[in-house]
Design a protein around this nucleic acid. Sequence first.
DNA 1: CACGTTACGGAGCGATGTTCCGCTTTGCAA
DNA 2: TTGCAAAGCGGAACATCGCTCCGTAACGTG
Lengths: 203, 203
Amino acid sequence: MTDPTPEPAAPRRRADVERNERAIVDAASRVFSASGVDAPVREVAAAAGVGMGTLYRHFPTRADLMVAVYRHQIDECAEAGPALLASAPSPFVALLAWVHRYVDFLGTKHGLGNVWQGDAPGLTALHQLFLDRLLPVLSSLLDAARESGEVVADVRPYELLRAVGDLVAWTVHDPDYDVRHIVTLLLTGLRQEQPDWEQTDAD
Amino acid sequence: MTDPTPEPAAPRRRADVERNERAIVDAASRVFSASGVDAPVREVAAAAGVGMGTLYRHFPTRADLMVAVYRHQIDECAEAGPALLASAPSPFVALLAWVHRYVDFLGTKHGLGNVWQGDAPGLTALHQLFLDRLLPVLSSLLDAARESGEVVADVRPYELLRAVGDLVAWTVHDPDYDVRHIVTLLLTGLRQEQPDWEQTDAD
DNA sequence: CACGTTACGGAGCGATGTTCCGCTTTGCAA
DNA sequence: TTGCAAAGCGGAACATCGCTCCGTAACGTG
């Protein structure tokens, strides 16, 4: 589904190119797990046994590298959406379950939440991947929950996806802070119409 | 450490010490406004007309500097709590208004949200200041709203303070993402009891 | 096997955080 | 007023990190 054309005009890649690319993604995967996604680029290059130049030619930005490392897991997360919708007792429960799954995914990659930060204009590759793959899923879950009448609040999928991302962003294991709980609270809020509070604040 | 006592044993500070400290905080205030709280330390030192050594002796960490710059505003935010509680039509409305004020405060300092990130163990100076000054305020607002029956959800003040902080953290002006809206949704969620959803997710 | 093309490696540049130490300023006292 | 020790200052220097650049090595085709 991702991977459109297998061989559009196959410019026949050199053997070392293939080999290095695998080595880099492999190393990055290991390094990210061990030191977080903010690990120095040099470290990844060293772990892969390639030079900086090679790494940068293959993955010009850190986000590109992260895409390569996490694309598979993101796809899995996306694909879980329809399945949950089909098996859950109600659309809202499915929504809740999916969002929790999303939280778990982000949470295990220490620091991945930054996806939503930084450059809004250029839209980093990873940011874009999240939008492409996850937004439609969340969108349909939300629609279903709205149709079933469980969700009544006016909220756009993008807002929700990003808000949850922000909440998880820097989660370190803190006994006093349970992201899942907060996320559940947020989703619970969707079940209520919101009065005209929006104007309530000062100034 | 927060230095409550004016003169515990007044070791009589040198004049230049006083002068430099003022100059640094002043400069930092200007630089932070102009370039965000992540501005290079050198820039602040230059703007203050002092050397790096001087700056670091006065403020060993960036957080210490931020405390000096923002303490006043944080105090104002804290003091607004009781006032709002007294003047708002209901405790929940006061809670909502105060949280929005908190959001506005964080939002105007581009990047200040990082307070909650980083070292949980040592607790950065700024993090600690937020806890000391704002947590009690939010706590009392929340209690009041719970007593009035408007808030029924089980949530601790710390969770809420931090969640909102995370939501605002990197807010850049994005037409597709309105933090205030999301925060309102979150608070709305507090008005409902939460079913046993917490367990709903897979695995 | 030779040669042109492609890719590689890592030194090097600029930016930033942080430390360290010789020199200056300050305040007290003679 | 002047001398002096201590306190404080300045900024060079070191360490890291992101990123670029180009001489050199590897590849694969004829």
